[in-house]
Computed example of a mutant assay.
Amino acid sequence: MAATSTAIRPEPAQQSSRTAVWPEARFRVPAANALPRSVRVISLNDSDVDVAMSRARGARPHVVFSGPADFRALMGENAFDRRTDAAGCMSPVQRRRLRDWLGTPDLVLIVGDEADDPALGILAAHEYPSHSITISGLIRRSAVSASNDSSTSNALRPLCSMIVLVNDNGYLDDMLDALGAKE
């Protein structure tokens, strides 16, 4: 039984060699997620090495970087305390500012080190699922966290769809490319 749909189209002739090897690749579905995705990168530390390296490679029109300094500039120095429920303690004006700061990206990537305070990532992760936005984490193990202290990744793990633990710097750009945030 053959089914036809306007959402599915046959592959061009130049890709027919793949069809012989991978028969499931006979059709491509043109979908919105094939377009460049908008990504919000939330760094847990304003001097994050991976964020600095990614920014140095040039502007990416589909990637917005945010960190603790950006958050405090918008919300005020005492916007939240790690020991309290930050979102529950906000005024209506602060809630509106938080929504503006969070935006509506397709994907959120929380970047940091095991030694970083995860509070900003936790706050964002609690707010984004209500908007059906996928949250991923990229956490570096460091010399400071070599003693098996995984408090940052453990705090973010239940809030992220995917969390990647790495031992070195330089993974952010590769992850952004893999997530479809390039031109």
Rank of each mutant, 00 (worst) to 15 (best):
S47W: 07
S5A: 13
S136H: 13
A3G: 09
A79L: 04
K182P: 00
A56K: 09
A73N: 13
R96F: 07
V29D: 05
V64A: 09
A115T: 04
L98S: 05
N78Y: 13
P30M: 09
S153V: 00
R96L: 13
S5C: 15
G180C: 09
L172F: 07
L44G: 00
E77C: 04
M75A: 15
R82A: 14
A52F: 08
G180N: 07
T134Y: 04
A79Q: 04
I42E: 00
R157A: 11
E77D: 14
S142Q: 03
S142G: 02
A7H: 15
A79W: 14
V111S: 04
A178R: 13
S161E: 11
S66G: 09
A31L: 07
G180I: 04
D50K: 03
E183G: 09
A155S: 14
L35E: 14
A124W: 00
D81W: 08
L179Q: 09
V21W: 03
R72V: 07
A3P: 02
A2H: 01
R96Y: 11
S130M: 09
Y128I: 07
P10N: 09
S153C: 00
A87R: 14
V144A: 08
S5H: 14
S43T: 10
G121N: 06
V21Y: 05
A20W: 06
V39K: 03
D173G: 12
P105V: 12
I110H: 05
R83C: 07
P129Y: 10
D168L: 07
D173Q: 14
R96Q: 15
V39M: 05
A34V: 01
A52N: 07
I163K: 03
P92H: 03
T104G: 01
V93P: 01
N167M: 06
E183A: 13
V41F: 03
L35P: 03
R9T: 08
S150R: 08
W101S: 06
D149A: 03
L74A: 15
I163T: 10
S91N: 12
S161I: 04
C89A: 13
L156Q: 08
S130K: 15
W22P: 00
G67W: 07
I8K: 12
D48L: 02
G58A: 15
P129A: 09
G137H: 00
S43H: 02
V41E: 01
V144N: 08
I135W: 01
P30G: 06
F65W: 10
S66H: 09
N169G: 05
Q94Y: 04
S150N: 09
V41Q: 05
S47C: 06
L159P: 10
P30D: 10
A87I: 13
E24I: 06
G88A: 15
E127P: 02
D48K: 02
N154H: 11
L159K: 08
A31R: 10
G88K: 11
